[in-house]
Design a protein around this nucleic acid. Structure first.
Lengths: 240, 240
DNA sequence: CGGTTGCTTGAGATCCATCAATAGGAGTGG
DNA sequence: CCACTCCTATTGATGGATCTCAAGCAACCG
C-alpha cells in the first residue's frame, strides 16, 4: 500500500523510487487519535509536524461568542503544518473528525532530506503552496459564494483531492462529516446547510447517504460554483 | 531610513547588524507600479518574489459572475509570495491599490542567505507563518463575524501591522483604500460597508476622514471583533 | 465646466440565522 | 428486547442582516 502522502506528492514532483523510500522513511511515531478529540490543543507545544495517514481532521478556531470556524480540512496525505519550522504555539487547535492515524515528521529530518535532493525539496514546497491555494479558495468561497455554491465548490474540491490519493471511487467518495461540521467549515448555520443540500439533491447534482457522497452531474456542479481546478495545481483529474 | 521589511523581521528574529545589511542586500530591481494596475497578472510568469517597499497592494480573485474577492492585503514590508520557490503561474493576480514601490527578491539568493545563517532562516519562516496566520484570521472573519465586527477586526489588525513598520502615529494611520476595496476584502457590498462604518463612527470607536483612520477606543474595538493580537506573533503592540 | 469616481441615503427583496419542534439512529443500561 | 438518551437530520415560522437597485451628492481632474 502506497502512503497517501507519497501518492499526493507524485502529482507535484517527479519522484524516483529512491525518493519515495526516502520520504516514507521520514514518517515516525504513528499514533491513533479518536474521533472528536484534539490532535494538538491550542497553545500546546508541538515538536513534530502532524501528517494525516488515515481519517479526516481539521484546524478550527473557537470564537468567544461560541461560534466555531473550521479553517482547513485535512484528508489522508495532508501535512498539517509548514514543513520548515517546529510549530511553537499552535494558534489554532487541530482536531480529529473521524478516528485518525497521525504520522509525525521531524522538521530537522525534512530539512536534511531536502538539503541534498532537489526533487524532494520541490515536492515539499509544492505541497505547501497547494495547501495555501486551498485555503485561499476557501476564503473566496466564504466571501463571495452563496450557500449552495459553497457546498458545490467543496464537493468538487474534495473530489479532486480524494481522487489524488486514491480515495475516490469514480464520482463517489466517503464524506465522513456531519452537517454541523459543514456549516462550521462554510460559515453557515446547520439549518441552512441542510436546506441547501436538499436543493443540490433536488436538482440531481449529488446524493449523500450514510456518509457516502455521489456526484451525479460534475459539470453542473463545477459551473454552479465557478470551480476551476487549476488552483489545485495538478495534472488534472476532472478535465482530461 | 530602515527598510520596512527589516523593521518587520526584527519582531520575529534576533537579527544582528550584519544580518540586516545582508537582508538589505537581497533586495534588487526596485520598480514603481502605478495605482490600480497589476503588479503580476494572472498566469504571468514571475521569476522573483515581490516585496512591498512603499504603498499598499493586494492579491485578489475575480469570479466569473463579476464579483471580486481580495484575498490578502499587503502593506510596506510585506513579502507577497512564499520565499522558497519561484512563483510559476500566479493563480491570483497581485495588484497595486496605491502607487507602489516593489523590490524583487530572488528565491535563490534568499536560499543562499538562509543556508548559512540560522537567524535569517528563522526570520523568513517567521514571516511566512505570520502571513499565513493573517490569512487564516481573515478567513474566520469572513465566516463568522458580522459586518461591523469584520471592519473592527481589520482596523485592529492594521493598527498592529502598521505600527510594526513604523507607519502608525499613535492610534492613527493612513488607510488609503476605498470603501469598494473594503467591501471586496471583507466579502460585503459597498452599501453595507458604508452603513457599518457609520455605525462604528456613531459609537465613537473610530473616525476616518481623508484617508486617515483614527482609533478612538481601541479596547472597545478589540472586544467588538474578538481581536486577539497573539496571532500576529510579535511582542505585542497593544497589550505591550 | 463636464466627467469620473467615490460616498451616502432610501426602499424593497433575498438570503440566511435563530428559535422551536419533530423524527430517526446509535449506543447504553435495564 | 425495551426504555432512554444523545446526536444528527429535518421542517416550519419569524426576524434580521445583507444585497440590489436607484438616486443624489461631494470631491477631484482635465
Amino acid at each position: 500500500m502506497i502512503h497517501p502522502f507519497v501518492r499526493k506528492l507524485r502529482h507535484g514532483a517527479r519522484l524516483t523510487a529512491a525518493d519515495e523510500l526516502h520520504l516514507a522513511g521520514l514518517m515516525h511515531a504513528v499514533r491513533q487519535v479518536e474521533a472528536r478529540s484534539d490532535i494538538v490543543a491550542e497553545g500546546a507545544p508541538a515538536r513534530t509536524l502532524p501528517l494525516i495517514v488515515e481519517g479526516w481532521a481539521c484546524r478550527y478556531k473557537l470564537l468567544e461568542n461560541g461560534k466555531r470556524q473550521i479553517i482547513s480540512l485535512f484528508i489522508p496525505g495532508d501535512l498539517c503544518e509548514p514543513f520548515g519550522v517546529q510549530p511553537r504555539h499552535m494558534d489554532h487547535p487541530l482536531s480529529a473528525i473521524t478516528p485518525v492515524t497521525i504520522a509525525a515528521l521531524s522538521p530537522s529530518a525534512v530539512k536534511a532530506a531536502i538539503a541534498d535532493n532537489d526533487r524532494l525539496e520541490e515536492a515539499f514546497w509544492w505541497d505547501l503552496l497547494l495547501a495555501a491555494a486551498i485555503d485561499r479558495e476557501h476564503l473566496v468561497s466564504l466571501g463571495r459564494l452563496s450557500a449552495p455554491e459553497r457546498l458545490a465548490h467543496l464537493f468538487c474540491e474534495l473530489y479532486v483531492r480524494l481522487a489524488r490519493v486514491g480515495l475516490a471511487d469514480g464520482l463517489e467518495y466517503d464524506l465522513p462529516v456531519s452537517q454541523l461540521d459543514l456549516s462550521d467549515l462554510l460559515g453557515l448555520s446547520t439549518v441552512h446547510v441542510n436546506r441547501s443540500l436538499q436543493e443540490l439533491r433536488r436538482s440531481g447534482l449529488i446524493s449523500w447517504r450514510s456518509g457516502r457522497l455521489t456526484i451525479h452531474d460534475l459539470p453542473a456542479l463545477q459551473e454552479l460554483s465557478y470551480f476551476d481546478e487549476t488552483y489545485l495545481q495538478g495534472e488534472g483529474v476532472i478535465l482530461r
